[in-house]
Write a protein that binds this DNA or RNA. Structure first.
Length: 512
RNA sequence: GGCGGCGUAGCUCAGUGGUAGAGCAGGGGAAUCAUAAUCCCUUGGUCGGAGGUUCAAAUCCUUCCGCCGCUACCA
């Protein structure tokens, strides 16, 4: 039976340019998608852009262009970044596409039909000049005791007609969801925060606006556009062809994993399941929130001018070194720091020294002493069996780690094995066996080739380009690179191409 | 203020009742196939402070100190 796996990134808000945080979530989702493909699952991997809302409208005005022209440009940039990072998305959805608009209106209609949406009025402190509402506690006192927005704009108490979603009615069902399915929401800290938030009491949610028009019209009431989160969250369904239950992709619902940044965990873990409950639609299996990146120890912000475009890093260090660094450095669900020093250290120690050099030393021994031909397997010694058993365990170990979104721990498992290979080659010393026992030397090298094939196969989701080249050098054919193929040893006698370095060491230019 | 998380070797972190761990960094040694990479051994911690429960606590409880997050519709 083929299992289906549906994984999503958030759809990124086109308010600003793509940065390392977006790239990180996308790369993590990409690893999940690629891993499941190699495991033989049928995969659908969705990413895209969130293009409605007042902020986008304002940004377009500020840029002096029509909203559509504005979002076309920024969405294209997000897509270009996904391509630059080698994100293997199956579809890229934009919330301004007709298919999304139709699906979102259908979802709204279904929720409304189940009596979970009603018309009332949204009240609050409104600043005409800023065209937005402020919370009571954000206001400051002006000279005449007048209330002012933090921007200094005068505010007035206004009522605006708005549709509301009966979020309050779903409190108990949401708490039951978190309780009965502890795996639904992670990591642990985020889960606690969300539960505590829901327990503190939910108010109904305003889900439409009349104060701007850059959004999806509410079905049957064109004066309103939908609140951006109703619009945005619906993308996970609209890309599947919702509401057409017969659409081929609808079989991927419910989603297996929504990967999100921790700032939007609440929208995915509270509002989204509530919308779906209201619509009578099955819930996603898991929402997992990742942390933030700091840059050289500092928070990333426009005002500090330290916003990192991952493409600049790729330019300098290479795509796979950057992908590897992001996945290796971030502790499970936590925040992480991006520093030049750390990136270079990971690249040089783990990629160049541990893995790249292992491949290079093994392959050049095969090239020189075995005529570049894959030796037959020989009788296995205890050490041989031990190493190969460790490799054989990797698919199972990584599968378990990815199940809990522990990408860092998954890589650690592989690196333990890589270190074991380096220990093995030193202890067996094939360069010495060359003179004393050439047959055993060939067997040792064969063990290493098999071990490296397993390692490279497992690392493909993390570093697709470089591991592809490593498998080329190991003589592994294109259809022999999935997890199931590992059961079948390569036939001996295959000719290998001349070895070439995989990961160059990075040497920082000396500052005088 | 309320709720929650974190505080373990120089650094990044793992470890939720049973004689303190990994990687990196530091020190010593071996090897020389290899991208001067690798391998072996090793220095180093009163597990934030104090008190308590227990035969036994980094691990449970109390309290204090420090850092961080959440506390809703502005992605």
């Amino acid at each position: 039976m083929t299992r289906r796996f549906y994984v999503t990134t958030p759809i990124y808000y086109v308010n600003g340019a793509p940065h390392i945080g977006h790239a990180y979530t996308s790369v993590a989702a990409d690893v999940m998608a690629r891993f499941h493909r190699l495991a033989g699952d049928e995969v659908f991997f969705l990413t895209g852009t969130d293009e409605h809302g007042q902020k986008v409208e304002q940004a377009a005005v500020a840029a002096g262009v029509a909203p559509k022209a504005f979002v076309d440009k920024v969405a294209a940039d997000f897509r270009a970044m996904a391509d630059a990072m080698d994100i293997s998305y199956d579809d890229f959805i934009r919330t301004t596409e007709p298919r999304h608009i139709a699906a979102t209106q259908a979802l709204w209609t279904r929720v409304a039909r189940n009596d979970a949406i009603y018309l009332d009025a949204y009240e609050g402190w409104y600043a005409l000049r800023d065209e937005c509402f402020y919370n009571e506690d954000e206001l400051v006192d002006g000279p005449n005791g007048q209330k002012l927005a933090p921007t200094g704009a005068p505010v007035e108490w206004v009522k605006e007609p708005s549709y509301f979603f009966r979020l309050s009615a779903f409190q108990d069902r949401l708490l039951a969801l978190y309780e009965q399915h502890p795996e639904f929401l992670g990591p642990y800290g985020t889960r606690n925060e969300i539960i505590s938030f829901v327990k503190s009491g939910l108010r109904d949610l305003s889900v439409s606006r009349t104060s701007f028009s850059w959004g999806i019209p509410v079905p049957g009431d064109d004066k309103h556009v939908m609140y951006v989160w109703f619009d945005a969250l619906a993308n996970y369904l609209s890309a599947l062809g919702f509401p057409d239950e017969q659409a081929p992709r609808m079989a991927f619902w419910p989603a297996n994993l929504h990967l999100v940044g921790k700032d939007i965990a609440r929208f995915h873990a509270v509002y989204w399941p509530a919308f779906l409950m209201a619509a009578g639609i099955e819930l996603p299996k898991k929402v997992f929130a990742n942390g933030w990146w700091t840059i050289e120890g500092q928070k990333m912000s426009k005002s500090l001018g330290n916003v990192v475009d991952p493409r600049a890093l790729v330019q300098e260090f290479g795509l796979d070194a950057v992908r590897f660094f992001m996945l290796r450095e971030v502790p499970f669900g936590g925040d992480s720091d991006l520093s030049r020093k750390a990136l270079i250290a990971r690249n040089n120690i783990e990629l160049a020294n541990d893995l790249g050099n292992l491949a290079q030393r093994t392959l050049s021994l095969v090239a020189r002493n075995c005529g570049g031909i894959v030796p037959e397997r020989g009788p296995a010694t205890e050490e041989d069996s031990k190493l190969l058993a460790q490799v054989a365990l990797l698919p199972e170990l990584l599968s378990a780690q990815l199940e809990r979104c522990a990408l860092t721990d998954a890589l650690e498992e592989v690196w333990k094995t890589i270190r074991a290979c380096n220990a093995y080659i030193d202890h067996q010393a094939p360069w010495a066996l060359r003179k004393t026992d050439p047959e055993r030397m060939a067997h040792v090298l064969r063990v290493l080739l098999d071990a490296m094939r397993g390692i490279a196969t497992m690392l493909q989701p993390f570093m697709p380009g470089t591991m592809g080249r490593m498998l080329d050098q190991l003589g592994v054919a294109a259809d022999e690179r999935n997890f199931a193929a590992l059961e079948q040893p390569l036939p001996g006698g295959r000719a290998l191409p001349p070895p070439q370095g995989l990961f160059p060491r990075y040497v920082e230019a000396e500052a005088e």
